Simulated assay, not measured.
Amino acid sequence: MNQPLMILAGGNGFLGRHLARHFRQLGYEVLTLTRRAKRFGEVAWNGRTLGPWASKLEGAAVLINLAGKSVDCRYYAANKYAIVRSRTESTRVLGEAVAQCLNPPALWLNSSTATIYEDTTGAAPANTEAAGRIGRGFSEMVAQKWEAEFNLATVPHTRRVALRTAIVLGADGGALPVLARLARWGLSTPQGTGQQWVSWLHIADFCRAVEFLVARPTLEGAFNLCAPEPLPNATLMGLLDRHYRPRWHLPQPQWLLEIGAFLLRTETELILKSRKVVPQRLLNAGFRFRFSSCQQAVADLLPQIDSAAYLP
């Protein structure tokens, strides 16, 4: 019996590694499209133009596009251009490849981001797929262009799902190991005012949510991939503080974060924007989270981070 085939475009990062492992355990053959193919199961592509890689999509069960330049950089004009281009061009060329298939992939899941919604503060209602308030800043514009390119693709025989993914928490990548390292040294205090909302998702639930969407052929369109309980930044930092109990506590006012972001060549928006998002469509479809509260998630992940940090 042939294994179902999954194509992971830009799949060598944190999320891609976990998805590949998860779906291989489910019996899938996973091929990763990457700019530097070095291992078995990797196929070279440049994310912009058609090439021999396009034939690999023929007959695939699932195509997942995770490609895009990291937003963990300074938002200079060149970086902004690269952030937009890397997302829209990879999506466009995948659409061209799917369109020319005689037996196109049954499902195409394309990355997007929960940052598509506007800065949502205080007691304002959380953003859902149906009633979310789309923002107008650079990050929100990137997401809108990304999804527009995805929706423009002429792929009538392929189901499409846009993954509006929040901050994914894991022990071996993403934001949590960085926050944990800082918390050990006393930076477990609220960042800025600490009132900004954080929408998040445990890496295990990210993989399970993708599996859920793959298995239900009636589901299409945009889905918020986040846990159902967003929390204020101060609460998240408090969870880290209670775990690490540092000997001192260093304040993190916005002006200090701006200096730190400049030195680290990144932007404070990544931690100061208020993201208040809930996964209404997933919940309505019957998905059940293994880690619905952030307290559960960090209790699972921080011991893993700690054991990795202190291995000889």
Rank of each mutant, 00 (worst) to 15 (best):
M1V: 01
N2M: 11
Q3E: 00
M6K: 10
A9E: 00
G10H: 02
N12S: 11
R17N: 08
R17E: 03
A20G: 15
E29Y: 06
L31I: 05
T32W: 02
T32F: 12
R35I: 05
W45A: 10
W45Y: 11
N46H: 11
L57I: 06
G59S: 10
L63S: 02
N65V: 06
L66H: 05
L66S: 07
A67W: 03
V71Y: 05
C73W: 01
R74K: 10
N79A: 09
I83G: 10
V84I: 14
E89N: 15
V93R: 06
G95A: 01
A99F: 07
Q100K: 10
L107M: 04
L109W: 11
S111P: 03
G122F: 09
P125E: 13
A130V: 14
G132H: 03
Q144E: 15
E149W: 10
L152E: 14
R160P: 03
T165G: 15
G170Q: 02
A171G: 09
V178D: 01
A180E: 02
R184G: 04
G186E: 02
G186N: 01
L187G: 00
S188N: 04
G192M: 07
G192I: 04
G194I: 01
W197N: 00
V198P: 06
S199W: 01
I203R: 07
I203F: 00
P228L: 12
P230W: 13
P232N: 08
G238E: 12
L240S: 06
L240M: 06
W248N: 02
L250E: 04
P253Q: 01
L257K: 03
R265Q: 12
K273P: 05
K276A: 05
V277L: 09
L283F: 03
D300I: 04
Y310W: 06
